[in-house]
Design a protein around this nucleic acid. Sequence first.
DNA 1: TAAATAATATCAATAAACGATATTGAGAGA
DNA 2: TCTCTCAATATCGTTTATTGATATTATTTA
Lengths: 123, 123
Amino acid sequence: MPKRTMEPLTESMLYLLMAYRTGPLCGIDAAEWIARHSGGRIRLGPATLYTILAKFEAEGLLREVSVEGRKRTYAVTERGEEAYRAELERLETCLADAASAHLERRPEDAADEDPAPAALPAL
Amino acid sequence: MPKRTMEPLTESMLYLLMAYRTGPLCGIDAAEWIARHSGGRIRLGPATLYTILAKFEAEGLLREVSVEGRKRTYAVTERGEEAYRAELERLETCLADAASAHLERRPEDAADEDPAPAALPAL
DNA sequence: TAAATAATATCAATAAACGATATTGAGAGA
DNA sequence: TCTCTCAATATCGTTTATTGATATTATTTA
């Protein structure tokens, strides 16, 4: 049984796996995919991008499938799929915990910076 | 208009805000709340705990509401609520992006470490 | 006053993130 | 073949975060 996949991925790492799940890509194309599919919210500079790619290949989450000149194309491995699914599950768990915590809220205890006007009690 | 709240919170930070939303707490009690409500998945050691509390107070996400001897009790501020909501939104956005990315998957491109048996095509 | 306890604070070592910059390989044009 | 340019990748160096281990401090108990 392979070593358990390391868990809290960074947002950049999650989106990289997400990109590679659509098919083999080189680094640049993956970064472009991410920018498009995150509404421009997430932009990976070269340092972040290639650092993570190297890490992912070393950990077996991605696998190099071709080299044409300088251009290296990677594809997600089964371990990469697992790591991706595990991360999505983690996010879902966080949201579920948040939802259940919401039920036991005691809003009267909220401490506001300026306790003065308190017109509308915020949502 | 106050400076925009910094965005990707760590998991520990998110759960801390979650804990404080239930009412004022001292650090230790917050850490216990988190261990209980995460099914033991998340345990904050003292370094993590107090480092984040200090950061949150400095940033105005928490506010000290009482000191009894060594024991300091904090409560979440309106900015803390905002940061919490923003983080939940971010998680939801990630999951939504993942879901929409799923639709454009090309599964035939997946690169398996050992391309041999390929019995059940994993989910 | 001293020992024990509970809570908080700090150290130090490791790792992550990322802007800026450098390197490399392929092709184009002379 | 030489060099120019471009696209893609690689690395440097700084800053920031994370965390186990340990130290400090206020209160309580004996």
